[in-house]
Amino acid sequence: MPDLEVRIDEKRFGDAVILRDLTFSAQCGEFLALVGPSGVGKSTLLNLIAGLDPLFDGSIHWHGAPLHRHAHSPERLGMMFQEPRLMPWLSALDNVRLVLADPAAESERARTLLQEVGLGHALDAWPNQLSGGMQRRVALARAFAVDPRLLLMDEPFVSLDMPTGNRLRESLLALWQRDRPLVLFVTHDLREALALADRVLFLSEPPARIMLDYVVPLERPRNLEGTAIAKLQERLFSRHPSLLSGALEAPSVRHDT
């Protein structure tokens, strides 16, 4: 039985239908990337899975329990957004401690996570003393502080320069491979998706559904800037030229390897 089962019959905002007939399932330990055009509903989908928005037709189950009822969020849920969302009046350490059930007793976990993402020297720094990349590292440590079983990431490394982004991706993969949560990672960058994920779910244009569930055939570790990723991306585009535009090429397009 899958750990996560998602069936969105329909999600709308007013008269606009955002998601329709969108279904997929996943197991703990998997890393899934969600790719699709801007405004297609990727962030909306994450909010539904997080239990933040119960207003849709369908069902979402986590370990067999429904998340589609009001105020039902998964236990041990981690989230990371496009912006770090740090509390400016708290130090880096206290921003991580903030999500812990017992900050005093679990303080060492927060320290260890910040050290693991390369911020052991900046535990007492205020957010405005940290660069954008360093703030994202604090947010990454905070996302893993709850020892998540489900981790939702909404374009967490967008707008970063390549070296900074690569360091964060390496930190993310190291933490994920150690703790093995189920990760749902939204990105517009197909190379990033292919470098990080076990599976890439391509969303169609609105009303969005999964038009391709692609199993990444490359072994780890992978180099985002390497030739293997470039060749795989080229092969995907040769088979499915309209993938990133969200244009459905055929009703039968569902799975690929």
Rank of each mutant, 00 (worst) to 15 (best):
L32V: 14
F237A: 14
T44P: 05
P156D: 02
R109Q: 13
H72G: 00
S131K: 07
D9G: 13
V117K: 02
G51W: 01
R239N: 11
I210M: 07
N95Y: 09
G118L: 10
A122K: 10
G120K: 02
V253H: 15
L100Y: 08
V253M: 13
D21Y: 09
V96C: 11
I49C: 02
R76S: 07
V253D: 12
L151G: 07
Q27M: 12
A230V: 05
A195F: 09
E249H: 13
D213L: 00
A195H: 05
G133R: 08
P148Q: 07
Q135E: 11
S159A: 14
V158I: 13
L32A: 06
S43N: 01
E155N: 07
G51T: 01
G58S: 03
L190R: 03
A195C: 15
H240D: 09
C28R: 13
T257S: 12
L194M: 08
P88A: 03
P127I: 09
V186G: 00
E234W: 11
A50N: 03
S252L: 13
L22H: 06
F56M: 06
S238I: 09
S43M: 03
W126M: 15
R109W: 02
L194P: 06
E192N: 07
F81N: 02
E249Q: 15
T44E: 05
P206V: 09
L98A: 13
R199A: 08
T23S: 14
H255M: 12
L77M: 08
N47T: 06
E108P: 05
A125K: 14
S25G: 13
I210L: 09
Q82H: 10
H255K: 13
F31P: 03
L86A: 05
A230F: 08
P74Y: 00
L32P: 07
V158R: 10
G58D: 02
V216I: 08
M80I: 12
A143E: 01
P251S: 14
L244I: 05
E75A: 11
H240Q: 10
L45W: 00
L224N: 04
E83D: 15
A71I: 00
R142C: 03
L175F: 01
Q115R: 09
S204V: 10
F81A: 06
P103L: 12
M79A: 14
H70K: 15
M79Q: 13
L86D: 04
L175Q: 02
